[in-house]
Design a protein around this nucleic acid. Structure first.
Length: 493
RNA sequence: CGGGGUAUAGCGCAGUUGGUAGCGUUCCUGGUUUGGGACCAGGCGGUCGCGUGUUCGAGUCACGCUGCCCCGACCA
């Protein structure tokens, strides 16, 4: 069954449209008929599962365990932490009834007014409240700490405008929630999880990120500090790809989670929370893909190698099948995920284009010519380069090639990012250039007024105070007041 | 919730001064093809978003409603 495959919009013509078409045509996801929601198709979900597995293993290495908490949160829980409720109240879906009944004309159903809930339930926009309400019963002594739980789940935030993977009303994520006996331990945990995110995103998704800390206004609702990883997309816009929050004792206090410390004195537990979502899929797609379609990092590609035979007669096909089987087995023996596609309904040219669209890192082609010469044609997706190599030692060759692709796409993305990071000291210059994308390193006086003015006049926001950047004091380019450090300012998704 | 669009086959679209439904593509069947998105022939598929009105007659005109898209506000 052939699929309709039209040419993609060029990245340079309309980046948003290109992205949207790519997600749909590469079979990753599609818009659902349900408002603001997304259907993740099997191919997209296979990639997400791989990301999940990598993250899960890394979490466990740091002592985190998985658990699950309810989807529905009593309304009163949400309002316990004042800043938290203010941050999320505007985008909550609310369950008000628990029953439907047949309508008067017996051709449909209506909400049964008699089934109104005494207290409304909120569909979780995030789970701090319900988890900390639970932790109250778990934590009595410093010996119970730390508690290091993660949950894989869906959350709902009633967004006004949605985009596949980047912003949908419902999305999949993991949220980790930890409780600690000391402030220092909690702060270190928040920073540790940020490092875990940066590791996974850079070394598996091959997406370079800037680690940093958010300004007060960009902080998570209820946090004392929000750490972030920021990636740059190919249009120069920033994508917040993961966050880790130091929550202080705010939730411990709000949910009365107290423990007796070594001195036998009651103390509120210290908290962190941290999450990454299916938005990572968006980062993956936008960072590497080109006008031919997706480019997947070998570490996450559901199919790493596709082998395509080209034949004219059944005898030829049989001969190629036999020869190719050896290659496929050899590659699989090395743990690679290989697809052999001898579907006679599709022509080779169609398959080439289709696997490129889907981002398969390496393609092997075997025809009558190769059969005679004992060779195979190898194409790498990242550069689209083709070479013909002998079958002898093909497994090691392909394995090396996959490693090289993984490294190359990361280096390419990092080079692009670095070429679009600018130090900027002049606000007029900034205003002219920021709309074309890029990360602008600018001195900031730390005031919310400056931040608000930049946002209003340029639609750019302070992404973070970057770590690992040599800071020197200077003058805020907007207010002219002294500034302790430079921050990254950019337009963002 | 403000401002602007749009609604006709699964998808993308045309449809003139009102005259009874069309193109491309997908899909199905058969054949020829197969080293970069094949070709030929045949076929399936539509209460023209919903409702009311004007008219001998409405996809087309008027009014109302609804959905969706874009631009704002909000945002992992």
């Amino acid at each position: 069954m052939a699929k309709e495959l039209k040419e993609l919009t060029k990245r340079s013509v309309n980046y948003s449209e290109w992205y949207n078409q790519l997600v749909v045509k590469a079979d990753l996801a599609e818009q659902s008929d349900v408002r603001g929601c997304m259907v993740i198709k099997p191919y997209g979900y296979a990639i997400w599962e791989k990301i999940q597995r990598v993250l899960d293993d890394k979490f466990k290495e740091t002592g985190v365990v998985n658990a699950y908490f309810p989807l529905l949160i009593p309304k009163s829980f949400l309002s316990r932490e004042a800043e938290h409720v203010e941050g999320f109240a505007k985008e909550c879906a609310v369950v008000t009834h628990y029953r439907l009944k047949t309508n008067e004309s017996h051709d449909g159903v209506v909400v049964d007014p008699a089934a109104k809930l005494e207290e409304e339930l909120i569909i979780r926009p995030t789970s701090e409240t319900i988890i900390w309400n639970t932790y109250r019963n778990w934590i009595k002594s410093y010996r119970d700490l730390p508690v290091l739980c993660n949950q894989w789940c869906n959350v709902m935030r009633w967004e006004m405008r949605t985009r596949l993977f980047l912003r949908t009303s419902e999305f999949l994520w993991q949220e980790g929630h930890t409780a600690h006996a000391t402030r220092e331990e909690a702060e270190e945990r928040a920073r540790l999880m940020l490092r875990v995110y940066a590791d996974v995103v850079e070394n598996y998704l091959a997406v370079p990120v800037v680690q940093g800390v958010k300004s007060e206004t960009e902080r998570f609702a209820g946090a004392l500090d929000t750490y972030t990883i920021e990636a740059m997309m190919q249009d120069g816009k920033a994508l917040q790809s993961g966050t880790s929050h130091f929550l202080g004792q705010n939730f411990g206090r709000a949910f009365d989670v107290q423990f007796l410390n070594r001195e036998n004195r009651p103390e509120y537990a210290w908290a962190t929370s941290w999450g990454v979502s299916t938005r990572l899929m968006g980062a993956l797609i936008m960072t590497h893909s080109d006008d031919n379609g997706l480019v997947l990092p070998p570490a996450l590609a559901p199919t790493q190698v596709v082998v395509i035979p080209i034949w004219k007669t059944d005898e030829q096909l049989a001969a190629i099948n036999a020869k190719a089987q050896g290659v496929v087995d050899g590659l699989r023996a090395r743990g690679l995920s290989v697809k052999y596609d001898n579907d006679g309904n599709k022509r080779p040219g169609f398959k080439f284009a289709d696997y490129e669209l889907k981002g398969v890192p390496v393609r092997l082609v075997m025809g009558a010519r190769d059969l005679e010469n004992g060779t195979v044609e190898v194409m790498r997706r990242d550069t689209l380069e083709k070479v013909t190599v002998g079958l002898d030692g093909i497994e090691a060759y392909v394995e090396g090639l996959l490693k090289d692709i993984q490294r190359n796409i990361f280096e390419k993305a990092r080079a692009f990012r670095d070429a679009h990071v600018y130090e900027c000291d002049d606000y007029e210059d900034f205003k002219r250039r920021v709309k074309d994308g890029g990360f602008f390193l600018c001195h900031w006086d730390g005031s919310a007024e400056t931040e608000a003015r930049i946002k209003e006049e340029t639609q750019a926001t302070i992404r973070c105070v970057p770590f690992g950047y040599e800071q020197t004091p200077g003058i805020d380019m907007v207010s002219g007041r002294p500034a302790k450090c430079r921050v990254i300012i950019a337009r963002a998704y």
